[in-house]
Computed example of a mutant assay.
Amino acid sequence: MWISLFRHWTRYRLLYKILFFSVLFLGMYLGMRPGPPPTPFKFNMIDSVYHAGGLFICTLLSYLAFPRWRWWLRGVLMFSVGVAVEFVQSFQPTRSADIHDIYANSVGVGAGLLVILAWQCYSMRRV
């Protein structure tokens, strides 16, 4: 089973890279555009869920696309994306940067790193 999983992973690595960069650029576009992205609900917590969820997914996809990156490099790069989005939002007249969004970004990156660590520990134990 593990051999077939690694073959699948190797065979579709380019697809994972394309998916990672597509999700990353979509998140950056939505975060840096002049108006906020449309939301189905008007609820204050939904913004934090978008931030945490988006960077959680990007962190997981970064592992699928680039599995040899060190954990700290992956964390720094994903955290930098979140800070860059907030930095650009601070210059938009219709948007505002918020420290709580950076906290939500950090939670998403940290949760993604924990899931990756759990997967690595589980795969090492099973081999």
Rank of each mutant, 00 (worst) to 15 (best):
P36A: 14
C121S: 11
R125I: 08
S80P: 07
W119D: 07
C58N: 06
K42D: 15
L73T: 15
I18L: 15
S96L: 01
Y50P: 01
P93K: 02
G82P: 08
P93Q: 06
M124F: 12
H100G: 13
D98R: 05
W119T: 11
S80T: 08
R11D: 09
A97H: 07
R7V: 07
L24R: 00
G31L: 02
V109H: 06
Y122V: 03
V49A: 14
L73S: 14
F25R: 01
I116A: 03
H8K: 12
A84G: 13
I57M: 00
R126W: 04
T59W: 04
H100C: 08
L55G: 00
V115C: 12
L73P: 06
C121R: 14
Q120N: 11
R33D: 12
G75H: 06
G35Y: 13
R7S: 10
G53L: 05
Y12A: 07
G54A: 05
M32V: 08
H8E: 08
I116E: 03
G27P: 07
F6Y: 09
Q92Y: 00
H51P: 03
L19C: 01
L30W: 07
M78L: 14
F91C: 00
L61W: 01
T59R: 04
M1T: 11
H100V: 12
V83P: 03
Q92G: 03
L19H: 02
T94N: 08
S62H: 07
L64F: 14
C121N: 08
L14I: 11
R11L: 09
L113G: 08
S48V: 09
P67E: 03
V107A: 10
H51L: 03
R74E: 01
A65V: 02
V88I: 11
A84M: 13
L14H: 12
P38T: 13
P67R: 06
P36N: 11
F43A: 11
G82S: 06
L24E: 01
R68E: 14
V88K: 09
G35L: 15
A118I: 15
R95G: 03
H51D: 04
M78D: 06
G27L: 13
S106A: 15
R74Y: 00
P34I: 10
R125L: 14
S22T: 15
L26S: 11
E86S: 06
